[in-house]
C-alpha cells in the first residue's frame, strides 16, 4: 500500500530524511517513532505530497507521488499534528468541503458524517464555527474529514494529541477497522505503549535515518518498545 524508496530530503546542509526505505502492506498499522526533530514530520509530509524531495520516490498503491500526486492523494487521508483547519467555516461546512473535493456522494457522506460525528460526540457542535473549537474538537473534525472518503491509507502525525481518553479509544478502534477492511495506517507517535499495543510494524528514525524497522516482534523481541527505543537512542548518540 505504501512504499518509500530511498527518500532523501535536505534543508540546506541538514538531511531531514536520509535514504529512507519503508514498505507497509494492506491491513498493517505501522508506527513511526523518533525524538523531536528526527525527521518524522518531514517524511510524513513527503508521503502526503505536501513536501517536495530531492531523491527517491514514494508509491501509494503502486502509484508514484512524484508522477501522479493527485491520484495518490485521492487514496490517502492526512491528519496533521496541529489541526489548523479553516476557522471561517463551521464544522459541517468543512466536512462538506472535504467531501466535495473527494467527490463523495451525498448519501454516502451524510452517513459517514453521522456515524463518525456520533462516535466522536461532535454532532452537537457541527454547526459551530471551527474558530470556536478546542484543540481536541479540531482534532476530531480532522479525523472525521480524513475518514469521509473511505481512504485506503491513513497518514497521521501525532493523532492522539489533544484527544480525550474516550476519543483516543474510538480512534484506535477506527484504525483497526480500517486495516481489517484492507486499508493501511502509518502514524507517528511519542506514546510508545499505544504503538506497542496497536501496531503490526514499527520504524524508528533518528537524524533522518531509519535505525530500526520491522514487525513489532522483530523490533522489540522480549523487551518493551520503550526499552528498545531508549537503547537505540543511546547507541546512536
Amino acid at each position: 500500500m505504501l512504499k518509500i524508496q530511498n527518500l532523501t530530503k535536505t534543508y540546506g546542509e541538514k538531511r531531514a530524511a536520509d535514504d529512507i526505505n519503508l514498505h507497509i502492506k494492506k491491513g498493517e498499522i505501522c508506527a513511526f517513532i523518533g525524538h523531536n526533530g528526527a525527521g518524522k514530520t518531514t517524511t510524513i509530509k513527503a508521503v502526503c505530497g505536501i513536501l517536495n524531495f530531492e531523491k527517491g520516490d514514494i508509491f501509494i498503491d503502486g502509484i508514484s507521488i512524484k508522477e501522479a500526486p493527485v491520484e495518490c492523494k485521492k487514496r490517502i487521508a492526512y491528519i496533521s499534528d496541529d489541526p489548523e483547519l479553516y476557522g471561517f467555516m463551521t464544522g459541517i461546512q468543512y466536512l462538506n468541503f472535504v467531501a466535495d473535493i473527494f467527490g463523495v456522494e451525498r448519501k454516502e457522506r451524510s452517513e459517514r458524517i453521522r456515524k463518525y460525528a456520533d462516535m466522536f460526540e461532535l454532532t452537537e457542535n457541527l454547526a459551530k464555527p471551527i474558530s470556536s473549537y478546542s484543540h481536541g474538537m479540531k482534532q476530531k473534525t480532522a479525523v472525521i474529514a480524513a475518514l469521509i472518503h473511505g481512504p485506503k491509507l491513513i497518514i497521521m502525525d501525532e493523532p492522539f494529541v489533544g484527544l480525550d481518553p474516550k476519543a483516543s479509544h474510538t480512534l484506535k478502534g477506527i484504525m483497526r477497522n480500517v486495516c481489517n477492511e484492507g486499508g493501511a495506517i502509518f502514524f507517528s507517535t511519542h506514546v510508545l505503549e499505544v504503538a506497542e499495543k496497536l501496531c503490526d510494524k514499527v520504524a524508528i528514525i533518528k537524524n533522518g535515518k531509519i535505525i530500526r524497522y520491522g514487525t513489532m516482534d522483530e523490533v522489540k523481541g522480549d523487551t518493551t518498545l520503550e526499552e528498545v527505543f531508549l537503547e537505540l537512542e543511546d547507541e546512536n548518540a
Binding site: 457522506r109 454547526a127 459551530k128 464555527p129
Partner: peptide, 17 residues
Amino acid sequence: GTVYKKYREKIVKAASP
C-alpha cells in the same frame, strides 16, 4: 458575537472540487 446554532442534519448539494 459568535452565532451558536445546534446542528440539524440537512440535505446538502454535492459540488465539484
